[in-house]
Structures are given as C-alpha cells and as structure tokens.
Design a protein around this nucleic acid. Sequence first.
DNA 1: CCGCCGGGTATACAAATGTCTACTTGGTAC
DNA 2: GTACCAAGTAGACATTTGTATACCCGGCGG
Lengths: 226, 226
Amino acid sequence: MTLVRSGVAQGKRLLMDAALRLMAHSRSLSSLGLRELAREAGLNPNTFYRHFQSVDELGMALIRHIADQLRQPLRDLRREAAQRAAEGGEGGPRLLGVDLGRGRLVCHETVALFFRFVEENPEAFIVGMRELHGASPLLRAELREVMEGFAQDMAEDIQNLQLVALDGEGVKRLSSLISRHLFQMSLDYLEQVDQRPRICAEAEEMIVTLFAGASVLRSLEQAPRA
Amino acid sequence: MTLVRSGVAQGKRLLMDAALRLMAHSRSLSSLGLRELAREAGLNPNTFYRHFQSVDELGMALIRHIADQLRQPLRDLRREAAQRAAEGGEGGPRLLGVDLGRGRLVCHETVALFFRFVEENPEAFIVGMRELHGASPLLRAELREVMEGFAQDMAEDIQNLQLVALDGEGVKRLSSLISRHLFQMSLDYLEQVDQRPRICAEAEEMIVTLFAGASVLRSLEQAPRA
DNA sequence: CCGCCGGGTATACAAATGTCTACTTGGTAC
DNA sequence: GTACCAAGTAGACATTTGTATACCCGGCGG
C-alpha cells in the first residue's frame, strides 16, 4: 500500500510513508533522524537531501498531504450522515422550534462515521494530533490552520443543512469547538479500544449539549425578560 | 529559581529542571538525550544514571512533580473565583431556577484566574500538553490520569458550590470536558499572545453554553411533554 | 551523438550519543 | 576510626548521526 499520492518523486513518497509509519508506531517527528528515515524507506541517507532540507520540511509536506487526503472525505461523510438521519426522521421532542430528535440522529451518525473514519486512517490522526502539540512551531501553526479549515467546512454544512437556529458566527465557534474535541478524542479512541463506545457516546452528548446550550442562551438574550 | 522541590537529591532536581527548560523551549521529551540533559544541568553524563533508568522515567517523575505542584493551587483558585463571584452576586436572569448571572461571574473569574495561572507556570502546561499527545504511551497514560484527577476536583467543587442543577455523573462528565478544553487552550493562550482576550472569551462562552445545554436537556428528559 | 540534469548511490569523517568500568567524595552508623 | 553508601566524576568505547564530495544512470533537447 502506498500511502502517499503518486506524481511526486517516489523517493519523496517512500520517505513520507516511512515517516508516517515510524510516527504512528510511537515516535515524534522531532525525534526522527534523516538516517533513520532513509533506512526505514530502504534508501540511501543522502536521498533525503534531494527532497527535503530538514525534517520539519518533511513534516510540512506530510501535513499538507494528509490534510488534502482528509478534507473532502470528511465533507462527504457529514453529508452522508445528514442524509441517513433525514430518512429516519420523525418528529421527536422539540426545543425552541428545532427538531431535537433529528439533531440527535444527525449527531449520532456523524460521530459514528467520524470515528470509523479515524479507525480507517489511524496514522493521519495520530500524526496530526501529535504534532499539533508537538515541538515545531511551524508545524503547529500549519496544523492549526488545517483544523480551522475543517471547522469552517463543518460550519458551512451545519448552516446549509439548517440543523440549528443560530447565527453564522455562533455556528462557526461551535464547529471549531466540536472539531477540536473530536480530533482530540480520536487519539483516545484509537488507543483505548475497550472504551470506544463510551467515547462515542460522550462525544455525541457533548455536541448535543453544546447546541442545546447555544440555542437556549441565544433565545434568552433575544428575549431577556423571559 | 529552583523549579523542582527540595528533598530530592539535587542532581535529580537539576536534571528535572534542565528537562523542563529544554522542553519549554520547543523540544519533545523523546528528542532529548541524556547527555544533552546533563550538559544543560551542568552535570556529568553519568549522573543521569544515578537517578533515572531512562528518559521516560525522568518524564514520569517530571509529570508527577508538576501534578503535585498544580493540583492544590488549582483548587484554591476555583474557590477564590467562587468567593469573589459570590460577593458581587446580584440576581440576574434565571434559567431553570439557576442564577445565570452568578454562574457567568464564577465562570468569568475562574477562566481569568486559570489563564493567569497558566501564564505563571508556562513550562508545566507546555510540557503537560506536549506529552499528553506525545510519543510515550506511559507518559500519556499517566497524564490522562492526572487530568482526570483535576476534572474530579473540579466536579466536587462545582457540586459543593451548588452552581448548577445536575446530577453527579453529569457534572463529572462536564468537568472532564471543560478541564480538557481549558488545558488544551492553555497552549494557544501561551503562544498566541495577541489572541488572549479572544481565547478567554471563547472559553467562558463554551463553559456557560455547556452548563446551559446540560441543564435544559436534563429538564427536558425529566418532563418529556414540555 | 552529446551534454545536461533530476534522482539515486558510495564513501568518508568529524561530532555526538549511550553505556561500561573505575575512581573520588562527603556524610552517617556503628 | 573505620566501614559503608549514596552521589558525583573521569575516561574510554563502539555506534550512530549529520553532512560533504564525488560518482552513476536514464531520459530529454538539441
């Protein structure tokens, strides 16, 4: 399996794959030496120089690649979740004019699909989360940006699907929060195999809670003498 | 300034301080060599062996120390916040029988004090967050436990102060969520100096939103035909 | 046909690293 | 006083690392 897209110089691909493998198996990027990379990739140490100037640069390429690879699938996944939830949608209890049952369903599907996706791309999430808090400021900044992008996507979807009665800014902040938390939980999910159902359930609960809270607070400030 | 408590063998202390310094200045534990540590501590390389068997073991000691150092101050801090908020407490808008204004005030104070505390102990938070997602499974597990402890403390405080109408389990889950998020934001807070007010505001907002959401959901399930 | 160039290799070397064994010291127990 | 022990040092070793210089090869333009 070649984890990294073709079109780039194969040596580069091999090195990036090697890095991905090593990092997934409990290493941080900053602890990898170019020689170790090359060895794992089955290449000459000097080949590293042909493609990257430093380990950080490889990290950058890796992150960009991963981000490209994940962004669209994640969008598709949310769409699918929404659609599936819409089919089984009967009017449940309502909160401030929003169908709570349907929201719960969308949420449930989204979370389930998300973690399935995590399970299918473990290296990507491990590396991403590790380096988001890692040693290199460059990578941290880049990853923050990437994740902001994901949150942005999510916000747009939520608004398009009209899942909640909130203004754009509010939805954006919520999305950012939710995506951050989901990504953060992805590591626990991968690692604590026996806790997976609990993690899913808690993630769902958090999302629903946040939306409920945001809705109710908004309605309060619109009609402060309730 | 000696960052690590006395009572231990000074050499150990020096080494731990050195590690703390190096890690705070953008390094991950797994990328530190014992020789580098010893150099930074002004000691002979072999001295490391006298106190630790591996870098992971040092990391473990470091985490335990940091945790001990932070736990009580954090508790005090929450108490202080609650007290301060109680003094200035006038009846604001109410949500489901809970004084929303007072909750907001407690929340505001808590968040402000928390981030001030972060500002005063940057190394601790940097190291903690870095290794929580870091390369060593051992350290990750230990840190998760430590943070669970913090969340537990917080849950007890919240219940003792009767800040919200929720059952114990609910409060615990919320606390865990909140503490996780606060800790996570501590890195951003330290790094993005210009964004600090925004980060504080968003943290406050999240907490209030979560409590509001949890309350309203609970009231819904207690009286499903509202 | 020839020269060029991107991608890959071979060899070499100074510097740094982990680890071993052996030595010194300052206190403390008896 | 002496034996002991934790804490720290000194020196040596094989190994590993980053990096530099030089070489190889397959395709492409002219």
